[in-house]
Design a protein around this nucleic acid. Structure first.
Lengths: 139, 139
DNA sequence: TATTGTTATACTCTATAACTATA
DNA sequence: TATAGTTATAGAGTATAACAATA
């Protein structure tokens, strides 16, 4: 009954997405914008074209996401010191806090999600997960 | 390292979503529209309000999805025999075929995804999955 | 000439509110 | 008065193409 496991895996994905988006919405963020914040939190200020590259989306898309983040006060566009064409998308104080909150929420959700599962079963899950990822990647 | 398993679970979800959407796009469908087709394939003609109820979305949203499916030839709006306010969203021949193709693709993807995983590990995966779903639902 | 980012335009999903036709 | 579905309006994510400023 692989189809049943497949459906349940999709159900898990849907529940996870809903839970994550619920939290983000409470902080005034969408999933796409939060993804940008997380990356900026890890890497520091970045050019828009670099963001477009790492997320594999169009430049126009990044312009829109950054517009939204600027309007809501999470980032600013700073001039690039060496290239006057480029801007450096930079976290504000609020943006830094938000990025930290996102990380903390993810840890909290991860713990809650795997609560009550014995180490041994976690290992088994982890092993299967790696195979599933491999199977999907080489397709 | 629950956070790592968490991240990998999200990665799996993302890969699955991408794979599913890739296939659907090749058939001229989006995920939301395909969801409607699948339901119609299982239940037969349905009222829009019923669709809105089962997917827990607004009536407006269903109007838009059905508009798209009508334009692309997957469904028609038929008059409800007993209630002149209502329409019965009905699969066309093309819609029936598409619904069947979707189901077949899901089975195929499920098989490919779980290929090479011994029964015993599938069982373990299934068990953990159920707990994860429980943990997320009771939250 | 090539690159960075914006403007113009378009499509999709989603929502609330007002409205029409019907029950 | 309540319900089914549409129109009006709006926000968000995504894309391609044309364009301005700069490299």
């Amino acid at each position: 009954m692989t189809i049943e496991m497949f459906e349940r895996t999709l159900e898990l994905a849907a529940l996870l997405a809903a839970e994550i988006e619920r939290k983000l919405a409470a902080d005034g963020l969408t999933r796409s914008r939060a993804q940008v914040l997380r990356r900026l939190g890890e890497e520091g200020p970045m050019q828009q074209r670099e963001l477009a590259r790492v997320f594999d989306v169009s430049a126009r898309n990044i312009t829109g996401l950054v517009d939204g983040l600027v309007t809501t006060g999470f980032v600013t566009r700073e001039p690039h010191p060496d290239d006057r064409r480029a801007t450096l998308v930079t976290l504000t104080a609020r943006g830094v806090t938000a990025a930290q909150t996102i990380e903390a929420s993810r840890h909290e959700l991860a713990e809650a999600m795997f609560a009550g599962i014995p180490e041994r079963e976690k290992h088994a899950y982890r092993g299967v997960l790696d195979t599933l990822l491999d199977n999907l990647r080489t397709r």
